[in-house]
Design a binder for these strands. Structure first.
Lengths: 129, 129
DNA sequence: CAGAATCCGGCATGATACTG
DNA sequence: CAGTATCATGCCGGATTCTG
């Protein structure tokens, strides 16, 4: 939907905000980062127990993705039964304040947004009649 | 995956970060907000021309969603051909710094992340052989 | 020009079973 | 306990067509 636009594109497919959204806009990544920032070093099962509704598979996938990006470390203890612990790297920690920034906005404004949405629905109904 | 956990859940399905992600973690919403914050009041086609690869449908859907949440206003000019202009509300503007916060992190660290990911892939190959 | 309506495919996510 | 492997699916988003 761009056609021949004389101006520069501000928002190309490689712009920073899209890259961040593509990698961390998924359902679980930011939650894991925030959890680890609160609790420090945790093992696999502990993470799962503290994020409601995450499945074992998605927890594994999310942790691998964060590890491959260098946001968390993964340490395996050769015991039986096995134990694996995860922890934020300095890179991972550097992301936390920016997540908190979004979160704080949500805490402050999400109620208003839900009200707005309700009011909008009602308005739509009225004009439909 | 929670079972009986004595501790409080930090990250329930209604926690702020999830609410924000559910509503704005989609592919286009944050981009539209950021564009409008840069350019001020814009019409439908102008927005489409400045966000690479967005389809007409998704632009419409995204704008409606932002309007219903009270983040943007939508003004219709009864002309032929029609003209519709969009603009951030104060609520919408209040979100911008938090998006910029994420963006700035992306600008600073995304290259490192991509390198980490490549290195991780190589490491995986080596251990597979 | 700014959309509405419809159809459709792919991929993210979920559910289940199995293992060292 | 901490995963893998496989199969199933919902729905997000793209392509197309039509209209005031």
């Amino acid at each position: 939907m761009k056609e021949n636009n004389p101006d520069k594109f501000i928002l190309t497919s490689e712009c920073p905000i899209r890259q961040v959204l593509d990698r961390f806009g998924d359902k679980w990544s930011m939650l894991v980062v925030e959890l680890l920032s609160h609790r420090g070093r945790l093992r696999f099962s502990e993470i799962g127990q503290n994020i409601e509704d995450i499945s074992q598979k998605m927890l594994t996938v999310t942790l691998r993705s964060l590890e491959s990006d260098g946001l968390i470390t993964r340490e395996i203890f050769p015991e039986i039964p096995p134990r694996v612990e995860y922890e934020l790297t300095s890179l991972g920690k550097s992301l936390v304040p920016h997540i908190m920034s979004l979160t704080s906005w949500g805490i402050e404004h999400m109620a208003t947004i839900l009200e707005n949405r309700k009011a909008y629905e009602l308005k739509q109904k009225k004009t439909t009649y």
